[in-house]
Each structure stands twice: as structure tokens, then as C-alpha cells.
Amino acid sequence: MNEQEYTHLREASWRGRLTEIEAAQLQKHLAAHPGLREEWETEAGLNQLLEKLPEAPAVASNFTALVLQAVERDAAARNRKPAKGRLDLANWLPKAAMAALLLGFTFVGYHQYEIRNRVALAKNVAELSAAVSASDPELMKDFDPIMRLSDPQPKADIELLALMK
């Protein structure tokens, strides 16, 4: 038996009793390696002690009944109150309908406003274009002098100033 097989036997012993074949293999190995005997005896001692470890305190005799009651209570609570994240249609549907209605009104209102704006703009453009097309070119003859007159701070006439000097 090699080291790996010995380790395998030791791990098997942790889980319970060895089979007769395994026990015989082990005895043979321990006979060939007396140095391992003490280690094995400690292992076996601990195995036996763990095997004899008593159960935890027994559960109440009505344990199963209590669990079933808890399950019923939990189911009843879940029926009363919808689970978090689950959509409660009866509760949410009117709210969603109201929100959709408000959204619809807002959209229609905005659309009407846009249409009115565009109509007004088109009307203004039409009036302006009619005015421009109706103007006489003769009227534009004195445009520059008139513009200059309307200038609040006329620029100095450099040529005239030079002549005066």
C-alpha cells in the first residue's frame, strides 16, 4: 500500500467503519510501518468519540405540526399581501390608466399649441413677404443717407476736417 492508498483509507475511516478488506489492508500496512500505528490509534480514537457524540437535544414532539402551521401562516400572509415586486393589477391598473390619460391630454395640448404657433408664424411670414414685394425700388434710393441720419453718433468727416484746416 502506498501513501495515497493509506490517505484514502484514512479518509474512508472518517466517514465510518472500514470494510473487512480495507481493515486487513490497513493492518498489513501498519505492520510494515509501525511508526504509523500511534497516529492511526489516535485517528481511530477520535472516530469512535465522534461516532458516540450524542444527538443534539430532541426537537419538540409537535415540531412537524409547528412547521406546517408556519407554512400555512406564511401562505396566508402571502395571499393577503402581494409579494414585493409582484404586480398587483387591481391596485395599479386605475393609477396607470389615470397616468396614461394625463399623458394623453398633455400631448394633445402641446400638439395644439405647436399648431397654433406654426399658423401664426406662417401668417406673419406671408404678411411680411407681401409687404416686401409691394415696396417700390424708388423708395430705397435715399436709404443710406436716412440710415446715416438715424445714427446717434455720426462719424467725423475726415476729408472736410482736413479742408478746414
Binding site: 443534539a56 430532541a58 415540531f63 412537524t64 412547521v67 406546517l68
Partner: peptide, 9 residues
């Protein structure tokens, strides 16, 4: 529950 109550405990 009957089978596993004590092992779980």
C-alpha cells in the same frame, strides 16, 4: 420534515 428534523437540529 419528519425524516430530517433531527439531523437539521
Amino acid at each position: 420534515v419528519e425524516k430530517y428534523k433531527q439531523p437539521v437540529m
